[in-house]
Design a protein around this nucleic acid. Structure first.
Lengths: 350, 350
DNA sequence: TCCAGGTGTTTAATCGATTTAGCACGTGAC
DNA sequence: GTCACGTGCTAAATCGATTAAACACCTGGA
């Protein structure tokens, strides 16, 4: 059961360990093909695979990456982000250490130290929601920020283009003919960056469409179905001439709440009310009735980008700004033209 | 920027590297406390932390664990399982390598090799759905199966107690007074083990309540909202005297589909129809209207158990059988007594 | 003949820790 | 005085690779 060492291969091939190493790593041009082949055959015969720990000690490169994330457990996004990072790592023969800090600074500090002690070649500092974070004191220079921006700058970072996503969502509604479009925002201070940027996009489209923004159409709720329902109720309670015909929701859960609010009043989607969400959470957006038109968060792509930069395969633009990844809109069935008459049927069901 | 080595500490403390190692690791009783303290102070002063790669090479124990999982990306369960494993590892100073194989056997083989080359102390082989898997040929002896059972046996394994979960769910419905209880199953071959065990639990409770199982009440659909809806429609289309008053659904997504089917017919939950799900997916169960009573999958606990066994902190029972973790029922608002008269209002809405 | 240069391979240092064996010194017993 | 033993520490081997330097041998040119 003892592992096969390079010296076993050397013995089997009748050469020194140096020759084995050189041959297997295609290093020294002076070694003739015949010897290489003999060594390769011997290695295969005895079932040799190099000990990465020993190699890492000698070469000072371990081909491992540390991925530190806050709250992996409770978010549905983590998987896609990990997956993107993971795929790139695998394609290049790297292994990734995953540490979930649960947003605890002590755990975070210790994790960074443990990863540094393991001599990881680089670290990725990932957040599950787009936001601005303080750079941990001991973070090594070779680090990349994923789905967050370092407050102090100085590191490559990748985040979703939330502003452009907001633009896409609201443009979709304007194109369908809506003029009274509400933004159902999340209440502070949850993910201030994403929220603000999406709102910017919203305002930008209103401006380009010549629509005066109505402060009454910007409401907030907590990021849950119940929160979305309450916020939507607030909008749907507005007098008929001020009531929105379309809702742009901060996320899909909030949109799901808006569905409930609408259904409870007998409003049909999209005939009586159009709704656009954000995040494209499979288990929410696609399962709603009707399926929700939403803006997808490019977690997989962001994960890939971060790992590519971490591995040095890709060099970030030297602007110092975070790299923006587009958020594609996913068209489903929750957007339609506004009702011909400002919705005159506000019948209620208990 | 060069890392501090043990020889730097030795120089600073005026002793040999052997003494530093012995002192910092509390190894040799002959070293007096005064020297130990001097070494510790010197280490702190120069900012020394041991190089885990070098230590791993020398001690043949790396304090790392490899966690291999199929499809982390697309499941909401991965997080909690990882989190449980992760927490135990962290508590004991271990780091975990995560590899997502995407259920590709080639990737899996290479991942096992890469992890073995990295000299991980143990591996955890995790599935995202409870099922039986073939043991990969090169899997090391020190491996634990998480949320799956090794077909060939011989390894510790931990899985949810799906039969008991089925029992709990159906008992809840029987206790509420239901006699016509349907099982909305998933169609093969997705996760055959979980499905069969939950069905066993279902039959067990019917038997103990003296209810004759009706084959018409066991339907199947794919594991999606749409699949659940179709399957539920099939049940609700039954003639009034054979129609179920309660649905036990294989999972929460299917239950969500059943909600849609019920709502479309104007059936209220739980007044006209009681529903119990499985999985306790936060984004589905809690956000439904009304919130769904369901059976929780103990992913966090299973993750902990697997890691504890991997680290040798816990020894599995020597029965050779998989360790069963209970699935607690989560009471919300989707279960009530059956309608007084067998639901006479089957009005439909377009 | 001698040397330069090429070819094929090996020797030995190295990465940064841990750990065994043993050295140097002092003390107490006989 | 000698020996056994305890105390405090160190020298050196070791883990399993990589790699710079060097060695042995051969060929061809001056």
């Amino acid at each position: 059961m003892a592992r096969v060492r390079i010296s076993d291969v050397a013995a089997a091939a009748g050469v020194s360990t140096a020759t084995v190493s050189l041959a297997l790593n295609d290093q020294d041009a002076r070694i003739p093909e015949a010897t290489r082949e003999r060594v390769r055959r011997a290695a295969a015969e005895v079932g040799y695979t190099p000990n990465s720990v020993a190699r890492g000690l000698r070469t000072q490169r371990t081909r491992t990456i540390g991925l530190i994330s806050d709250r992996i457990a409770t978010t549905p996004f983590a998987g896609r982000m990990l997956s993107g990072a993971q795929d790139v790592a695998r394609e290049h023969g790297y292994l990734v250490f995953l540490v979930d800090t649960d947003a605890d600074p002590t755990v975070e500090r210790e994790a960074i130290r443990a990863l540094a002690d393991q001599q990881v070649d680089a670290m990725i500092y990932a957040c599950m929601w787009h936001r601005v974070v303080d750079v941990p004191a001991s973070l090594p220079r070779r680090s990349v920020f994923l789905d967050c921006r370092p407050a102090q700058g100085g590191f490559p970072a990748v985040v979703p283009d939330d502003r452009a996503g907001g633009v896409a969502a609201v443009r979709e509604l304007v194109a369908a003919g809506h003029r009274r479009i509400a933004y159902v925002d999340v209440d502070e201070p949850h993910p201030p960056v994403a929220s603000g940027l999406r709102h910017d996009g919203y305002l930008e489209v209103l401006a380009e469409a010549g629509i005066e923004p109505d402060p009454a159409l910007h409401v907030r709720g907590d990021t849950s179905s119940a929160g979305g329902r309450r916020a939507a109720d607030q909008l749907l309670d507005l007098p008929e001439d001020r009531r929105p015909t379309a809702l742009f929701c901060f996320n899909d859960r909030i949109a799901a709440g808006a569905y409930v609010a609408a259904h409870r009043r007998g409003l049909r989607i999209p005939q009586d009310l159009s709704i656009v969400g954000y995040d494209d959470q499979q288990l929410v957006a696609a399962d709603l009735d009707p399926p929700l038109t939403t803006v997808a968060l490019p977690h997989y792509e962001m994960g890939r980008w971060a790992m590519e930069v971490a591995l040095g395969i890709r060099t970030p633009d030297d602007t110092g700004a975070a790299h923006l990844v587009p958020c594609p809109i996913v068209d489903r069935d929750s957007v339609g033209p506004p009702p011909a008459t400002a919705a005159s049927d506000s019948r209620r069901r208990t």
